[in-house]
Design a protein around this nucleic acid. Structure first.
Lengths: 193, 193
DNA sequence: AGTTTTCATTGACAATTATCAATGCTATTT
DNA sequence: AAATAGCATTGATAATTGTCAATGAAAACT
């Protein structure tokens, strides 16, 4: 149990058997069927979720009812509404499963306990957030500085595995585009050889 | 010396006199005149900079020669090319001073020493990156889900102090717009009362 | 004080992207 | 196996944003 989780952890920090035991005691497994919610806007987000298996997304819904995808999460990634998790304010994002999922949940008290008692856990969290920050900054840079086709190429080269498992209209949403526009961009790129 | 820096640190974590002394020994002060570079694209970024006084920006230059602003940093903020800093790859961003600045530099070896020897430093870094991540996610959400006017309103309400110290065309760049478009958006908003 | 840069604004026009509506295909459900 | 829902594509048109050029004002420099 928790194979992917501990593999991810061990690849970043050294853990003693004792560390592992303590961490294990703070985790909760959870399965989710396709389309099921993990978190709904308005509820307080009480966990950080690690993806053992499957794909999820976080998103908001704007005034017109359009879904805007903030993040995808595949095996080995973390997903949460961090702001809600840390402040206990109502979540502004929804999170649901794009495929059937197996998750590892870290509750708020578990998270706080682990930060206090297992220094390596804090290190791991720091490294995770740092990578997430860098990735987000790259995404933002791509949005404000590249033409559409380059942005799509960029996306496909960085996340080919997302492309294969997520419908195109969600990728359009992630890129801040309509599905029609993305379809046309792709057509242009294909025709250009 | 380093007043703003230690104020920021102490507001997030408890430090002993000893912690403070160790940290102090790892810092380097640096002054920068308006328009001076702190980092140029292609060089390896060898520090994280904390702003004691002044304003800086990080940005890329696209194929057409247009500057695209990634981040502003005011008093109390950190700025760096994190990816370059962590991997020692050449920087993809430029950083320069918008006003005369006083900075506190944390070199790579200082950073690593402090992470190893002062647990509270790691905690502070974790908290800083976490806030930066959340802020970036909000910025991204705003870009992909709001109409231009709302985005500008959003920006002005979150960062009124940036607005006052940075020329408008840089704010346009930060928002991924041309200066002309931002000027027109503002006009529309003002005329609408 | 005078010169030079930098900056914000405006206009005319072009390019890009969104919207709305329709179609056919595929996967899922019953 | 049939019915339904989800999905990608296309066309016509509208809305948004960018580009290029010009102007005047303010700020920085000498």
């Amino acid at each position: 149990m928790y194979e992917v989780f501990f593999q991810a952890l061990k690849s970043k920090v050294d853990l003693t058997e004792n560390d592992i035991a303590i961490i294990k005691a703070h985790l909760t497994p959870k399965k989710l069927r396709k389309k099921q919610y993990l978190l709904q806007e308005g509820d307080v987000c009480k966990f950080v979720a690690f993806v053992e298996k499957g794909v999820l997304r976080s998103y908001t819904i704007d005034e017109k009812g359009t879904e805007r995808i903030i993040q995808f999460a595949l095996e080995g990634w973390l997903i949460s509404d961090l702001y809600s998790f840390l402040t206990a304010e109502p979540a502004t994002y929804n999170i649901d499963a794009i495929e059937d999922c197996e998750l590892v949940l870290i509750s708020k008290t578990a998270h706080e306990d682990l930060l206090r008692t297992v220094p390596k856990y804090e290190t791991w969290i720091r490294l995770q957030i740092t990578s997430a920050y860098i990735a987000l900054q790259k995404r933002l840079t791509s949005i404000i500085s590249l033409a559409l086709e380059e942005r799509y190429e960029n996306f496909t080269s960085i996340y080919p595995h997302i492309l294969q498992r997520v419908p195109q209209h969600m990728i359009a949403s992630y890129m801040g585009l309509t599905p029609e526009t993305l379809s046309r961009v792709r057509k242009k790129m294909i025709s250009r050889k």
